[in-house]
Design a protein around this nucleic acid. Structure first.
Lengths: 156, 156
DNA sequence: TATTGTTATACTCTATAACTATA
DNA sequence: TATAGTTATAGAGTATAACAATA
C-alpha cells in the first residue's frame, strides 16, 4: 500500500501512534459513545444510569448482579430500580430458589423503550454500518485485545 | 495480509458481526474504559468528573470550554473547579483579553496527579502496548470511522 | 457466619432559572 | 443584546454504615 507523495503538505504525516495517543483516542471514543447514549436516554426522560440498567436487562437479574454490572454499590440499585419501577419500565419479582434475592425484569413498556433506544443508538452510529466485513472483524478483534472479555466484571 | 487457516477447529466459526453486535462490544469497551478510569481516579480520592477535568487541562481553559468538553451545564463547572481548587490541584486566573472569562489551569500538584493517572491508566491498558504497528494504525482508523473527530464537540 | 436487599446519611453531579459583570 | 461565571434549588447518583431476612 504505497502512498503517493502528498501534493499538499499533509497535516498528519502518518502519526506513528504510540500507546499514549491510542489511549487518548480511546478516551475520546468512549466519551463520544456515552454522550450519544446519554442524549438518547434523555430524549425519553431517562438518566444515563437508568438507560444503562434497562439495556442490561435482557433477562431477569438479581439486584446484586445489576450492581456488579453497573459497577456501583448495591445500595444504589435500590433507588434506580425504584424510579424505573415508578415509571412502569421494570418490575421486582421474588426469586423462587433464594428468598433473599429479588429479580428485576423489564415490563412490556420497558422492553419497547430498550428497543427504541437501541435503534436510535444504531442510527447514530452510522459509521458502523459503513464498515466492510474485514473492518468489522478487525474492530471486534482489536477491542478484544485492548479490553479482554472478562475484564468486564470484577471477580467478586 | 493473508492469514493461515486455523489448524484447530475454531470455537467461534467467524461470528459475522452485524452492527448491533459491534455496538454491544463498543458499549462494553466504553464501560471498561470508564470503570478503569474511575478506579484510578478514586485511588487518589477523585471522582470521575474531577479526573476528567484534570485530564482535559493540558493547557489553561475557560470554564465555558470545560463545560463543553465535559458535556455538562456551565453551572456544574463552578462546583467541580471549586473542589479541585480547594485541594490545590487547579487554579483560576483572569483572562487578560476578556474580563468575563476565568481560565482554569493545573497547579504543579495537579500536573503531577495527571501524570500519575495517565501512567496508571496506560499500565492498565497493557493490551495497547501489545499491538503491532499495523494494528495500531487499524485501531486509530476504525475509531475515526465510528466516531468522527468533530463529533467530540457540539457546534455551539 | 455470610449474603441480599433496604434504609439513613452525606457528598457529588446534574439541569434550570435568576443574577452580575462584562462584551 | 449576548456571553461568562456564579448562586440557589431540586433531583439523581454515589459510597458508607447499619439493619432485617435468609442462606
Amino acid at each position: 500500500m504505497t502512498r503517493p507523495a502528498p501534493s499538499v503538505p499533509s497535516a498528519a504525516p502518518t502519526p506513528a501512534p504510540d500507546p499514549a495517543q491510542l489511549m487518548d483516542r480511546l478516551a475520546q471514543a468512549a466519551a463520544a459513545y456515552y454522550r450519544n447514549f446519554a442524549a438518547v436516554a434523555a430524549g425519553r426522560g431517562l438518566t444515563l444510569m437508568q438507560g444503562k440498567m434497562l439495556s442490561l436487562l435482557r433477562r431477569p437479574m438479581p439486584m446484586r448482579t445489576l450492581a456488579d454490572l453497573l459497577a456501583c454499590d448495591a445500595s444504589n440499585v435500590t433507588g434506580i430500580v425504584d424510579r424505573l419501577e415508578a415509571r412502569d419500565l421494570v418490575r421486582r419479582e421474588a426469586d423462587p430458589t433464594d428468598r433473599r434475592v429479588k429479580l428485576v425484569l423489564l415490563t412490556d413498556a420497558g422492553r419497547r423503550t430498550v428497543e427504541e433506544i437501541r435503534a436510535e443508538l444504531l442510527a447514530d452510529l452510522s459509521g458502523l454500518e459503513s464498515l466492510d466485513e474485514p473492518d468489522r472483524h478487525a474492530l471486534l478483534r482489536l477491542l478484544g485485545r485492548v479490553f479482554p472479555a472478562d475484564g468486564t466484571r470484577p471477580p467478586r
